[in-house]
């Protein structure tokens, strides 16, 4: 067994909203090993979004420890967290979050801009990333000229361009139709096979099927944590019939 790439121990997160204390996480422990494809599931209010924000270094836990790639990050400041997000993590969002009126290539270059990588290398790596997600011929297209699935592919290319250890995907198929969702999941599975750890938040059991481990959350705690044999998205795509979903 290799060392866990993500290791959260007894995470607690408490918000104060209008004088009412909300306990979003009530002692959550989770360890993810390199190469795992984990789905975090739960209804809204289960704490899965808060969990995702903390795992993504966008937020800090009220208490507990969180080690990312062997380094304790739960006490880091805003600037250092930004560097961790830039170097170790990649993000994929439900609404893609691409810069409008900016070409696919420039969108993908953005994380490298903040990593201080020079222009020539940025362009080369952005092109490589876009080829990897199957958009090698659409480098100059702006988000408005791309379909939803293509936009999400650009976002995935952006997430992998800095060679992160972990990709965090927050409802990545939430805005896509069934067929495109399968295509995106197939792409994630492919990335998973190349060794990247993926943590995905979803509320759709159909999507969770394609992962190798499902963590169910409720009321700020982990309800179940089950390893499974993933369904192959390529096969599902081959068998997909219009109107199935």
């Amino acid at each position: 067994m290799s060392e866990p790439i993500l290791e959260a121990v007894d995470l607690v997160k408490t918000y104060t909203m209008e004088d009412v204390e909300v306990r979003a996480l009530r002692g959550v422990s989770l360890a993810v090993r390199p190469g795992e494809f984990v789905a975090i599931m739960g209804t809204s209010g289960s704490g899965k979004s808060t969990m995702m924000n903390i795992l993504g270094c966008l937020d800090r836990p009220t208490s507990g420890s969180y080690k990312l790639a062997g380094k304790e990050v739960s006490k880091l400041g805003r600037g250092d967290l930004a560097t961790v997000r830039n170097k170790v993590l990649g993000f994929v969002f439900q609404s893609f979050n691409l810069l409008a009126r900016t070409s696919a290539q420039e969108n993908v270059e953005l994380p490298m801009v903040y990593a201080g990588i020079g222009g020539a290398e940025r362009r080369e790596r952005a092109t490589f990333s876009l080829e990897k997600v199957g958009l090698g011929k659409r480098l100059d297209h702006t988000p408005a000229q791309l379909s939803g699935g293509q936009q999400q592919r650009v976002a995935i290319a952006r997430a992998i361009v800095n060679r992160p250890k972990v990709i965090l995907a927050d409802e990545p198929t939430g805005n896509l139709d069934s067929r495109t969702s399968l295509e995106i999941m197939a792409l994630f599975q492919e990335l998973g096979r190349s060794g990247i750890t993926i943590v995905l938040v979803t509320h759709e059991p159909d999507i969770a099927e394609f992962t190798s481990r499902v963590v169910m959350m409720r009321d700020g705690k982990i309800l179940s944590d089950v390893a499974q044999a993933p369904v192959d998205a390529r096969t599902a795509l081959a068998n997909f019939q219009e109107g199935d979903a």
């Binding site: 966008l58 600037g79 930004a82 560097t83 830039n86 969002f93 979050n97 953005l110 903040y114 952006r158």
Partner: peptide, 16 residues
């Protein structure tokens, strides 16, 4: 605001 959030998420420091 969303653009700023995105830039921060992918590694922009407050100074950037």
């Amino acid at each position: 605001t969303r653009e700023i959030g995105l830039r921060m998420a992918i590694g922009a420091r407050p100074g950037d």
